[in-house]
Simulated assay, not measured.
Amino acid sequence: MSRPPVAKLPRRRVLAGLLALAAAALGHGAAHADGGGAGLERSVKAAFLYKFLMFTEFPASAFADPAAPLVIGVAGADDMARDLMRLVAGRTVNRRPVLVRTLRDSDAPDGLHLLFVGGSDAGQLARLARPGQQAPLLIVTEAENGLQYGSVINFLIVAERVRFDVSLDAADKNKIKLSSRLLTVANHVHKGAP
Results as ranks from 00 to 15, higher is better:
A46R: 03
F63I: 09
A77T: 01
V14L: 15
D169P: 02
V117C: 04
P109L: 07
S61A: 15
R3V: 09
R12K: 15
G123H: 02
G37N: 05
R163C: 08
R42P: 01
A77I: 00
A67F: 09
V166C: 05
N187P: 03
A47S: 15
F116A: 01
S61K: 12
R130P: 12
L137H: 07
A126I: 12
A193K: 07
A47M: 12
A33C: 03
Q124H: 14
R12Y: 09
L115W: 01
A33G: 08
F155A: 05
D65E: 14
R130M: 14
D65T: 10
V93I: 11
S151V: 01
L112C: 08
S179Q: 02
N187F: 07
F58N: 04
L125W: 05
L156K: 14
F48K: 00
V74P: 03
A171F: 04
L18F: 13
R91W: 02
G35D: 11
A38Y: 06
D107S: 08
I176A: 04
A143Q: 05
E142R: 06
A38C: 05
L168V: 10
N174C: 06
R127N: 10
L168W: 05
H32Q: 14
F58V: 02
L137N: 04
R91D: 01
N145V: 05
P10V: 10
L182E: 04
S43V: 03
D165H: 03
G36M: 06
R127V: 04
L15S: 09
L87F: 09
V152S: 00
T184C: 05
S120P: 07
A135Y: 08
D172Y: 12
G111W: 10
E41G: 01
L84H: 00
S167G: 11
R91Y: 07
N174K: 15
N174T: 05
G73M: 04
S120G: 08
A31M: 13
H28N: 10
D165E: 15
P59T: 10
G35P: 02
R3P: 01
G36L: 14
M85C: 03
G150C: 08
A16K: 09
L70S: 07
